[in-house]
């Protein structure tokens, strides 16, 4: 059961922190949006391990098999938090959390059923043995270290797209 109100709050809060959320109802819509977002990327990394990642259809010429020098990453993330507009990546199932960090553009695919209403909801369901790395991502990389002028895209991605499926 998908809670539309929760999705609305998530999308609103994600937009507030300069992430760019999309909501699609089927996989072909997802691939249309991916094609559009990633039109100009020449080196896209996709871990290709989850069901949703396996449904990603991109031009094979655009794809690369390591993230170190990729221009963009497409991956499924494990959770979204409506309260903050954050997405969550973890090292569980041998996933590399760096894939959402090194490329300048991060495209996160989020199953709408994995949206938690609050931070507490997420931590209450986290279990006893937590992954060695849990990272909350709330918008793109940013700094205000030079005269407090907000600058997007420092060491991490300058663009964060979230596709809700």
């Amino acid at each position: 059961m998908i809670n539309k109100e929760l999705i609305r709050i998530f999308m609103e809060n994600a937009s507030k922190v300069a992430a760019e959320p999309f909501w699609v109802t089927n996989l072909s819509e997802m691939n249309q949006i991916l094609a559009k977002i990633l039109e100009n990327d020449t080196a896209i990394y996709c871990p290709n391990t989850t069901e949703l990642e396996k449904s990603v259809q991109l031009d094979p010429k655009q794809l690369v098999d390591t993230f170190m020098h990729a221009t963009a990453t497409v991956e499924e993330v494990v959770a979204g938090i409506a309260e903050t507009g954050s997405i969550v990546v973890t090292s569980a199932n041998n996933r590399a959390v760096q894939v959402s960090l090194l490329p300048a553009r991060h495209v996160a695919i989020l199953s709408a059923s994995n949206i938690f209403e609050t931070l507490d909801d997420f931590f209450n369901g986290i279990g006893d043995t937590i992954p060695s790395n849990i990272t909350f991502i709330t918008g793109p990389s940013r700094t205000a270290d030079i005269e407090l002028t907000l600058t997007i895209g420092v060491h991490g991605p300058e663009k964060l797209f979230i596709i809700l499926v």
């Binding site: 507030k16 922190v17 992954p131 790395n133 990272t135 709330t138 990389s141």
Partner: peptide, 11 residues
């Protein structure tokens, strides 16, 4: 900020 861009929990 509602939350900083990144929050890392390292275990």
């Amino acid at each position: 900020q509602v939350l900083s861009s990144y929050l890392s929990i390292i275990s």
